[in-house]
């Protein structure tokens, strides 16, 4: 199975009237791992949020298609149903809903009514995935993300990713706040997802995550656009030399979206 294709064309996005993305083009296919890198403030997380439909972000121009379907016409839940997943940089805390109830609701939302996942099967799958991510068992019964440490929240995002098995996943700064051991565990989890049907967009401003998850394509974002693309060797060069050479090459003085 070839998997899905996510096509982003000339995407312009505003937040509170300020344009952050100024024409992003990117295509992700099943089986491919893409990394979007770049310094802070260049629009990387905006890209992730706009794809998922974050309420504060307004798409002013451009298209996002998933297997030819217009993603921008879909509600947030419909985007997830269609196969998109966003591991968030700052997941919400929700009091009163246990992690386990939430996850079961999410899994059942993708299934037909009357075909809900049997409770025992769910518990077994959740247990084994939690083991794999070395997540404390009591997290299942704690309220969703409430009082979780930064690292626990990140692992919880990956737990959801692995249980929900989307067609295309976007990982927004999933490495921030993780120590090196946790980073390895999380990376192992993500690498287990790798197959022909699964596409992944990894957003990071550190190269170190890419030591554990090797991307097929690397893109550099500056001033709200993708300014350079290449293979894994691009990430290596960025690690060794930083971003200055790209700015020089392209004549960019301030890489953030504030200037133009």
């Amino acid at each position: 199975m070839a998997g899905s294709t996510l096509e982003i064309r000339d995407l312009h996005v505003e937040i509170d009237g300020k344009e952050i993305l100024k024409g992003v083009d990117l295509t992700i296919k099943g089986g491919e791992f893409h990394a979007v890198m770049g310094p802070n403030g260049t629009g990387k997380s905006t890209l992730a949020s706009a794809i998922m439909g974050h309420p504060r972000y307004e798409v002013t121009k451009g298209t996002i298609l998933l297997d030819g379907e217009d993603v921008l016409e879909m509600e947030v839940d419909e985007r997830a149903q269609a196969g998109l997943f966003l591991a968030m940089q700052y997941p919400s805390e929700v009091t009163g809903i246990t992690n386990s109830d939430f996850l079961r609701s999410a899994i059942n939302a993708k299934r037909e009514e009357g075909d809900e996942i049997p409770l025992m099967k769910f518990i077994k799958e959740m247990d084994s995935t939690m083991d794999l991510l070395e997540i404390d068992k009591n997290m299942a019964q704690r309220y969703l993300n409430e009082g979780f440490s930064g690292g626990e929240k990140k692992r919880n995002e990956i737990l959801q990713l692995m249980m929900l098995e989307p067609a295309i996943a976007i990982l927004d700064e999933i490495d921030s706040g993780l120590d090196i051991d946790a980073l390895k565990i999380v990376s192992d989890g993500i690498n287990k997802m790798r197959n022909d049907a699964f596409g992944c967009l990894i957003i990071t401003h550190y190269q170190r995550l890419l030591n554990y998850i090797t991307p097929d394509y690397v893109h550099v974002m500056m001033q709200g656009r993708i300014v350079k693309s290449g293979g894994p060797e691009l990430a290596k060069r960025l690690e060794a030399e930083g971003y200055e050479w790209i700015k020089e090459e392209l004549g960019i003085e301030d890489e953030t979206v504030g200037q133009n």
Binding site: M52, G53, H54, P55, E75, V76, D77, R79, A80, Q81, F85, L86, M88, P91, S92, V94, F102, S105, A106, A109, K110, Q160, L164
Partner: peptide
């Protein structure tokens, strides 16, 4: 609205 967004981003209806 961000809680709602988070839950919906996992495929859960409004």
């Amino acid at each position: 609205p961000l809680q709602l967004y988070y839950l919906m981003s996992r495929g859960i209806s409004k």
